[in-house]
Design a protein around this nucleic acid. Structure first.
Length: 103
DNA sequence: GAGGTGACCCAAG
DNA sequence: TCTTGGGCCACCT
């Protein structure tokens, strides 16, 4: 609902929408794409406004999806064919080496 | 105007 | 590979 500074928020959402299917970007990369280093602010904005955006295409630099949303994101990754790297405990993370999208 | 919070990042052990 | 500590930026009260 109308944010006081749509510049930053709109820029973040625009970058997220520009991520093609099967690719992902790190929060740091999204921040850099809009000319900022506020990776945390990107996460905060996504938490409130990412509900209408492909938030699963934005992950940490380690490849881990947002906490408490890894199961939901996994469904999208499998549907889009995003390259994943599985651990022995059933924990997965996105293979940024293959899925990292650079604008 | 100041303080606290957060879907984070990086370096070192 | 995992964990800890410190730092950065934008938003909210």
């Amino acid at each position: 609902m109308r944010s006081p500074a749509p510049d930053f928020i709109s820029a973040v959402l625009a970058v997220v929408e520009s991520i093609p299917e099967g690719r992902v970007m790190a929060y740091s990369d999204v921040a850099a794409a809009i000319g900022s280093r506020a990776a945390r602010a990107v996460g905060t904005v996504m938490a409130h406004y990412g509900s209408d955006q492909p938030w699963w295409r934005v992950v940490r630099a380690s490849g881990h999806p947002p906490v408490d949303h890894e199961t939901r994101a996994l469904e999208h990754y499998r549907a889009e064919g995003t390259p994943l790297r599985w651990s022995r405990d059933g924990v997965y993370r996105v293979d940024l080496e293959l899925a990292r999208h650079t604008p």
